[in-house]
Simulated assay, not measured.
Amino acid sequence: MPSTAIDSQIHGCMFSTDEMREILSDKAWVQKWLDTEAALAAAQAELGVIPKEKTDIINQYAKAELIDIPSIGEYYKSSITIVPLLKAFKAILPENAGEFVHWGATSQDIVDTGIVLLERDAYEVILRDMKLCQEYCLDLAKKYRNTIMSGRTHVVHALPITFGYKAAIWADELG
Rank of each mutant, 00 (worst) to 15 (best):
V111F: 14
T147D: 02
T162E: 05
A62D: 02
D56L: 12
I115R: 15
E37N: 05
I169N: 04
T162S: 15
A45T: 14
A5D: 06
S16F: 00
E173H: 09
P94N: 05
S3R: 14
L40Q: 08
A38D: 13
G114H: 07
Q108M: 13
I69W: 04
M14V: 11
H157V: 10
L132R: 12
T36G: 05
A42E: 15
I10Y: 04
I148M: 08
E74P: 11
V116K: 13
L85R: 02
I58Y: 10
K142A: 14
D68Y: 09
Y136V: 11
A122E: 01
W103V: 15
L34F: 07
L40R: 02
E46T: 09
Q31C: 00
S25H: 00
A62F: 08
E19D: 01
D68A: 09
D56M: 08
S3A: 01
E65Q: 10
Q44D: 14
Y136F: 11
A38Q: 14
L117V: 00
L127V: 11
L132G: 06
D56T: 14
Y136I: 13
T147E: 03
M130C: 13
A64I: 04
T4A: 01
L34R: 01
E95M: 09
G12I: 08
Q31P: 12
P84S: 11
G104C: 02
A88P: 08
P51M: 09
T81E: 14
V156D: 09
V30H: 04
A158I: 06
L24E: 06
I80L: 13
T81G: 00
A97V: 00
Q9W: 09
A28R: 01
A64N: 02
Y76W: 04
P70Y: 00
R128H: 07
I58Q: 07
A5Y: 13
Y61L: 06
T81A: 14
K142Q: 15
A168L: 08
G73F: 05
R21S: 06
V155G: 04
A64R: 10
I169M: 05
T81S: 15
V116N: 12
L34T: 00
L140P: 05
D172G: 12
G175T: 00
Y136T: 03
K87P: 05
A158F: 10
A105Y: 03
G151S: 06
I148S: 07
P51C: 04
I10C: 01
E19N: 05
A168C: 02
E65F: 02
A42T: 15
E65T: 11
A38V: 14
L140M: 15
V155T: 14
E74G: 08
Y136A: 09
E124H: 12
Y76E: 15
F89H: 03
K52M: 13
C133L: 15
T4H: 03
G48R: 04
